[in-house]
């Protein structure tokens, strides 16, 4: 089963997801989509961790631990980020990231 899929496939998927996430993070204007892009980046890292752990050190579980941590942190981060987004919306009546520039200069 899974042993038949080489490691490179997982890494290719992870890399693709990572750059899709980065692309979305840099190009989207909507804060919610930016948040989703960040989640994509995190998940690509998760895939890498799990795959590398499985192929290189099958007897250890360190990669899995990291993955679980990252999922937990991503969940709390999403909560905080959405709270921030709500506040931004209340202040600027918009969640367009280009409008949030009152700290410039």
């Amino acid at each position: 089963m899974i042993e038949n899929i080489p490691l490179q496939y997982f890494l290719i998927v992870g890399t693709l997801m990572f750059f899709i996430g980065v692309f979305g993070f840099l190009t989207r204007r909507n804060l919610i989509t930016i948040l989703m892009s960040v989640e994509l980046i995190l998940n690509s890292v998760n895939i890498n961790f799990v795959a590398v752990n499985r192929y290189l050190y099958p007897n250890n579980l360190h990669g899995h631990f990291f993955t679980i941590f990252i999922i937990a942190i991503a969940a709390s981060e999403a909560a905080v980020a959405i709270a921030i987004i709500i506040n931004i919306y209340r202040k600027f009546s918009s969640i367009n990231v280009e409008n949030v520039s009152s700290m410039k200069n």
């Binding site: 993070f25 840099l26 280009e98 949030v100 520039s101």
Partner: peptide, 17 residues
């Protein structure tokens, strides 16, 4: 140099990445 600080998060992100 203060013009660099545009307040656009995505520009910072682009420079960083």
């Amino acid at each position: 140099i203060k013009g660099f600080q545009s307040g656009q998060v995505q520009k910072y992100g682009f420079v960083f990445v």
